[in-house]
Design a protein around this nucleic acid. Structure first.
Lengths: 193, 193
DNA sequence: GACACCTTACTGACCAGTAAGTAGAGTCGC
DNA sequence: GCGACTCTACTTACTGGTCAGTAAGGTGTC
């Protein structure tokens, strides 16, 4: 009989979940082991048991994100590109509702203060996300569901950059995210939805 | 006879200059008075003399940026919109060359960890920058030098968000900035330059 | 009795911020 | 033209708090 939760993975997962929320709202440098242990009702050293160095926690966080993102992409690979884009927009909305920004945004903003191990996997993660955005608009163009000027690389990159930027701006100007989403629809020639 | 430099303004300016570089490359939370005093060859308390709290330094930094930005905008208000956009692109390049990101990017990413006074003037600053981007594309459209889908608000906001995002991404993917710049030119219908 | 998963107790580094003192330059009365 | 005063721009020396990280011990489970 497979245990639903064993203590090991359970606490470890709770730590990662809390750390993720903290990173996406405050940034990696701006949260401490105290924030996590306090919330979790354990001692500081318990976090160090699972993640000896904060760098270990950071790397685990990013790697989990990469796996989750890969699953997310695979799960809806068969959907029409415009619908994938709308799902992406919905995802951004949930970040906005939680007052968070996207991981690539906070990681690239803090990049110069991150340990080298984290920089490494951040680079891979961000490249994967950008490539996915490029892929959506490329397939959208091929299937005739999207029309736009320029290359899929240019369009995908600007979509990704604009979404990352607008999630940050939306913290200060609540309307920015909706405005950017709508403008992206127009630029891709998919005004109806 | 007016003194070229008196000690007061000189040290104060050097502190602001150094703090600005530190903030744009490492972020506001990730630099300390030690970073500045060490580089400047003074003691820590000298910084506290000019800026009692770190919040004071942060606010002074943003307010100086706002004044500089206002002068920058005024100085080229008469230029044709497409040229203003190119100047903006050139400005972004100099940030990239210095491995920095734009102030609105770092400030909005760190927003939740900033003191309230800094959040306040950050909001004003970011709104001014966004409005400026909107104004460029609006006038570009009115003068017939730019053609694009959607409203000036939508297009200006996406241009601003995409530039902010791509400056961050460019730290990990050097090509992102050029790609976004070129795509913006295409989307505004000003491919030649 | 071995191992996973914690605890208590601690270290040293760094941090923002403060208090009190000082050197030098300018100003004033005389 | 000279002492007394004052102000600016620092200094030294310190505090209390927070941080990541470690060592050693305890406790329940297989």
């Amino acid at each position: 009989m497979k245990p639903e939760t064993d203590a090991r993975t359970d606490t470890r997962k709770k730590i990662l979940d809390l750390a993720e929320v903290l990173m996406l709202s405050r940034g990696f440098n701006a949260f401490s082991y105290q924030h996590i242990s306090g919330e979790l009702g354990v001692r500081n050293a318990a976090i160090h048991y699972h993640f000896p160095k904060k760098t270990d926690l950071g790397v685990a966080l990013i790697e989990r994100y990469r796996r989750r993102f890969a699953r997310y992409v695979a799960a809806q690979a068969e959907l029409p590109p415009p619908l994938q884009l709308e799902r992406y927009f919905t995802l951004a909305d949930t970040y906005y509702d939680k007052q968070q920004i996207c991981p690539s945004g906070i990681l690239s903003a803090e990049l110069h203060t991150l340990p080298p191990e984290m920089r490494q996997c951040t680079a891979s993660f961000v490249e994967e996300m950008r490539a996915w955005a490029v892929d959506i608009v490329r397939r959208g163009q091929q299937e005739g569901a999207m029309q736009y000027a320029g290359t899929p690389e240019g369009m995908g990159t600007i979509v990704f950059a604009a979404m990352q930027g607008s999630l940050q701006l939306a913290r200060l100007d609540g309307g920015a995210l909706d405005e950017v989403k709508q403008q992206i629809r127009l630029l891709l020639g998919i005004s109806a939805s």
